[in-house]
Design a protein around this nucleic acid. Structure first.
Lengths: 157, 157
DNA sequence: AGCTTTTTGATACTGAGACGCAAAAATCGT
DNA sequence: ACGATTTTTGCGTCTCAGTATCAAAAAGCT
């Protein structure tokens, strides 16, 4: 599953820029092309590297300036995995409620959804007197189950 | 509910140090006294400020060195609320599975627990082939429910 | 083409946290 | 109680992600 269609994403971003009276530039093109050519989570610095392979001249500043736009437009989601830098998730437009399980042994990140959890979160928020706006669930786990079965395909396992 | 007993906490920390062949020093005393005189979440810099009011000589380095010890001993929990600095939660020893709801309007942090969610998390981890080690659930919400009812006591609401 | 507004890239800056090291404190053996 | 050994401390420096500044370049407008 390769995330949102690159063309659809670009289109949505165009509409967002228009509505905000911002301009589509070649640098922004390169950046969102890069973002939606993967479905991996990435950091700002990674994105800079990748984008520069496509266009030497893309600057760090522009990458850091474009990421908040992508976040605001709902195409990408800002995540913190407990490191001292941010991660960005390009699968957000597809499934805005997905959660993450991070393996502490092999650093894999597995995405999952759960209607039951979503529903409970809503109920709890209501019962505390709030209305839920956003949510982040992060499970830290160990793949020893898979290891025991010899089924873990990851090199680090 | 004022968090774990200060005396109990100090005792637990003493045992932890002993087991690791580390020493109890006056600075570490001051730091954990400070930590367990509140049940609020705090940052490293806040802790430094508070501790220095009690003992001028406590250094930034020592605070930053002590916090990982407190975390490792299970007395405190490291949290990220999406800011670029970490928060620490002194209520962790009491209820290691509690979750957080952060109000985006008034910045209040409400703690809550849910056996149902805990259970679902475990089930999901198992079904993905992992065993759950740790968990962080963060809800971002707005207190407009309370506001509408005129029941929100917070000044910012 | 000229004029205005936005965007860009280079560079300097900020702020949390880590590191290195010599001095100070705690522990231990005698 | 005292010197030897080990740990811890405080200071200063360093790193690194992210932000701010600003003149130059690009885009859009008439």
């Amino acid at each position: 599953m390769a995330g949102i269609n690159r063309v659809a994403a670009k289109e949505k971003f165009l509409r967002f820029l228009e509505q905000k009276n911002l301009r589509m530039t070649s640098q922004r093109q390169v950046i969102i092309d890069t973002v939606f050519s993967t479905d991996q989570h990435f950091t700002a610095e990674q994105l800079l590297d990748w984008a520069r392979k496509q266009d030497q001249s893309v600057s760090r500043a522009t990458v850091y300036r474009t990421l908040p736009l992508l976040t605001e437009s709902g195409l990408v989601h800002e995540m913190d995995f407990g490191k001292d830098y941010k991660y960005y998730d390009p699968n957000y437009a597809d499934s805005p409620n997905h959660n993450h399980l991070i393996c502490q042994d092999c650093d894999r990140i597995v995405e999952f959804e759960s209607d039951k959890i979503d529903k409970l979160q809503d109920e709890i928020s209501q019962s505390l007197g709030f209305s839920l706006k956003a949510q982040q669930l992060r499970l830290t786990a160990s793949c020893d189950e898979l290891k025991r079965l010899g089924a873990c395909k990851n090199k680090a396992c």
